[in-house]
C-alpha cells in the first residue's frame, strides 16, 4: 500500500453529509460505493425484508440488477421504467456478453462504441505456473502466458502477514502437480516407455 499526503491526494471518502439520509431513501445511495450488500434484503420483498428499511447502511440491490440483458432504451437515456424494468440498467462491461465478432476476428468494426465485451485473446491463455514459480524452461516458446511479477520475499521465507493484500506475487509451489499431471503417451511406442517414466520421475 502506498502512503499519500492528505493535501496532494485528499482523502474525501466516507464524509457524512446532511443530505445523505435523503439520498439513501430516494436513490438507495450511500457515501461508500464499496459498502457491503445487505444480507436481509430480498429484492422480491423490498418493503419488509430488511428491518432497517430504507435507512439500512448496506446496499439494497434491486431485482432489476439480476436481469441479464441490458435495456436498449436505457442506454439511450429513454427508459422510463426505472427499477421496474425487466431489462438491466447497468453498463458494466464485465457483465456484458462477449462480442462474438471480436472473439472470432480479433477486431471489431464498432471498436470504440461496441457495447459487448472485448476479451483480449491474450487473457484467455492460462498463466504459466512454472514462470510464476521462478523459471520456465520453454522460454518464449511457452504456450502459456508469462506474467511478470515480483515474488514476495516474505512469502518465500514462509509467511507474509499481508496475505492476499500483498502487492507482490505469492506463487503456489505445489510440486505434486508435476507428478500427477496426466500426460499423453509418448509417440514412439517401441520400448522407450520405461525411460520416459524415469525422466518424469526425475523432473
Amino acid at each position: 500500500m502506498i502512503s499519500t499526503n492528505s493535501i496532494i491526494h485528499p482523502n474525501t471518502a466516507n464524509k457524512q453529509f446532511k443530505f445523505e439520509r435523503y439520498l439513501r431513501n430516494e436513490y438507495n445511495f450511500g457515501s461508500n460505493p464499496d459498502r457491503p450488500i445487505c444480507q436481509f434484503y430480498n429484492s422480491y420483498n423490498p418493503n419488509t425484508s430488511c428491518p432497517n428499511g430504507s435507512n439500512c447502511p448496506n446496499k439494497h440491490v434491486s431485482a432489476m440488477y439480476s436481469n441479464k440483458i441490458v435495456c436498449k432504451h436505457w442506454l439511450r437515456g429513454l427508459c422510463k421504467k426505472g427499477d421496474h424494468c425487466e431489462f438491466l440498467h447497468e453498463y458494466n462491461l464485465r457483465k456484458m456478453p462477449e462480442c462474438l465478432f471480436y472473439s472470432k476476428n480479433g477486431f471489431c468494426t464498432q471498436t470504440p462504441e461496441c457495447l459487448y465485451l472485448h476479451v483480449d485473446p491474450q487473457s484467455k491463455i492460462p498463466e504459466c505456473i512454472n514462470y510464476s514459480q521462478g523459471f520456465c524452461s520453454e522460454g518464449p516458446n511457452c504456450k502459456n502466458r508469462h506474467i511478470r511479477k515480483v515474488v514476495c520475499p516474505l512469502y518465500l521465507y514462509g509467511f507474509c502477514p499481508k496475505g492476499n493484500e500483498c502487492e507482490y506475487a505469492h506463487p503456489k509451489f505445489d510440486f505434486h502437480n508435476l507428478y500427477l499431471r496426466i500426460k499423453p503417451d509418448p509417440k514412439s511406442i517401441n520400448g522407450n516407455k520405461p525411460n520416459d517414466e524415469n525422466e518424469a520421475i526425475r523432473a
Binding site: 440491490v61 440488477y65 447497468e90 458494466n92
Partner: peptide, 13 residues
C-alpha cells in the same frame, strides 16, 4: 452526480 458500485450506477442528482 453520484456514483455507486456493484451494481454500478451513475446517478444525476
Amino acid at each position: 452526480i453520484g456514483f455507486d458500485a456493484d451494481p454500478y450506477r451513475a446517478l444525476k442528482f
